[in-house]
Design a protein around this nucleic acid. Structure first.
Lengths: 107, 107
DNA sequence: TTTTATCATCGTAATATTGCAATATTACAT
DNA sequence: ATGTAATATTGCAATATTACGATGATAAAA
């Protein structure tokens, strides 16, 4: 096949995988890191910074946005992309919860 | 294309993405969770538990193993797969470091 | 109004991932 | 040695992802 069998897992497991996917591409990690460094941010800045084409960056931003990690303020013709800190924090807590639950004594 | 341009990112960013990829598939999340629940664990148990074929599970285990997250003790003809807690802890710390660095004031 | 700048979407090619059947390998028991 | 159980590898089909050029949409500027 090629498609993941999502229906055989618990929602928690699927959520974890979905969240991890956001960070599973270096461009998205780089974008998140870059946005966080700026006061505000414009998509074209990201294009210059990362070195991928504008459509590709836009596509990655869409993935990040669909995960709820962005807040976009429209400023004229540009868009000021910002990190949604609350959601980001939520992700961190989910990760830590998973890590802490999974760590256990074994062998 | 279809291939990620790995050479344009810092090693830290690529590492982060590589680690996240391990958790970016629900089967692997489920496998990790299951292994951590057992005292030890045998591949065939995982096959029964998760509901994917033996080759598919074996393939996912390989990905997890290549990330350094497994310790395998051969027990007779079976393999006792165990979580490499140290490495797992290391992953957690890397994630937290990334999250903490990225959280910043914006907009 | 026309131009220009910025960002999104569409279409498409290249590559990666997922999943399984078939087969190979490994280790033990007989 | 032979058989058997457990796991790994291979090969392949289906699907997903990545990347970019071309094209749209929108809003400020000229």
């Amino acid at each position: 096949m090629g498609a993941s069998k999502l229906d055989i897992y618990t929602p928690e497991i699927n959520d974890m995988a979905t969240i991890a996917k956001v960070f599973a591409h270096p461009a998205r990690v780089a974008i998140l890191q870059y946005i966080s460094k700026q006061e505000g941010c414009i998509c074209n800045d990201i294009v210059d910074e990362i070195g991928l084409s504008q459509p590709t960056i836009s596509q990655h931003l869409k993935v990040i946005n669909e995960a709820g990690l962005l807040k976009g303020n429209f400023v004229g013709k540009s868009i000021c992309y910002c990190l949604n800190i609350n959601r980001f924090q939520e992700f961190q807590e989910l990760f830590n919860s998973f890590f802490n639950k999974t760590k256990s004594n074994c062998c």
